[in-house]
Simulated scan of single mutants.
Amino acid sequence: MPSTPGTPDAGTRNRFAAEAGARTIRLGDLAITYVPDGAVELKPRAWFPGTTDAFWAERPEYLNAAGNLVASIGGLLVEHGDRALLIDAGVGPLAWPDAPDRPIGALRGGALPASLAGLGRDPAAIEAVAITHLHVDHTGWLAPAAGGPSPLARAEVLVSASEWEHRALSDTDPAVLDGFAARVRTTADGEEIFPGVRVRTTAGHTAGHTVYEIASGGRRLLAFGDALHSPVQVDHPEISAVVDHDPELSADVRRSLVAELADPDTIGFGVHFGDVQFGRVVPGTPGWLPEDR
């Protein structure tokens, strides 16, 4: 039986709990590509403390065989001709197994430089890395790698002024923050940092969390970082993650973003959204609809 128009089919539903591969969309004169670095499993009840076993039993498509959410980790490459901006820098060459006392399960990173090479982009030629926030899974490749310099060592690092001011709240090693501090340029709300890319400071997940609004060709994309961790929050923006700095404020941000994503000319990008990262919200239709379904 065919799926109801506007709703994910069975193949799409299987992607909610799968790790994302590289994928490119065009937005006017911009090429926008997800660049994989790895993935992490999130324990649903621990990651979203406001949920119940019954809640997840009704939504099995979001969970893998181990009963966990699958969160992709990587960056978003924005290309304008020969110029390139990277939004977020993955987790870096890290890996750790599951531990019972953590809301985060097994994690694996390290693929971002090879992913960039596969796209024909030399990391050393990327002019800037724009950070949504200073958590370790977004700053990883800004640190030295294998005793040598970061592959992104030539890039300017763009961070919202409020996020940088509150960097002591970050879970990134202070030595790593100090290591790229000389390359940091703080940004202001509404500032254009690259052709078609503007800063939107959206405190909640962290004190200076940033959404990047990308517009070209009459359409826009909202790269919303960790304002939403999972597509399940599209229908339930009231659900905050255990790591949200201000759960109530982060819920307000999600409600506003979901309303904006219902605009027919607006696409969203959720870096941790499994294999359905590019998508949209359709009024009157539940859930998150992948842009390439």
Rank of each mutant, 00 (worst) to 15 (best):
S250F: 08
G284A: 13
A175T: 12
A227E: 12
P8H: 07
A84F: 00
R13A: 08
T51Y: 07
R293Q: 13
L63M: 14
A259Y: 12
F224C: 05
H80W: 12
P174D: 11
R254T: 04
W164S: 03
F55C: 03
Q233V: 04
A57P: 09
A207C: 08
A203V: 14
E192F: 10
L86T: 01
A111P: 01
D226W: 02
L228Y: 01
P283N: 14
R219M: 08
T202M: 13
D252E: 15
A153S: 13
G11L: 10
S230L: 09
G190Q: 05
E58D: 15
L116C: 11
L257N: 03
R13W: 06
V184Y: 04
F48T: 05
L222W: 00
P290E: 12
V242P: 02
R280S: 13
L119M: 09
A182Y: 05
R219C: 08
P144F: 06
S3N: 14
A128K: 02
I267V: 13
L94E: 10
D29M: 09
V78F: 00
Q277C: 10
P264L: 13
V78T: 04
L42V: 00
R154N: 11
V258G: 03
R254C: 02
F180R: 09
P8R: 07
A203R: 05
I267S: 01
L86N: 01
L289P: 03
A227F: 07
G28K: 05
V40K: 03
D275C: 13
S250I: 10
A95V: 10
P144I: 05
P149K: 10
A130F: 07
L76C: 12
A114F: 14
V276T: 09
A117P: 09
A175F: 00
E79R: 14
W141S: 03
G284R: 07
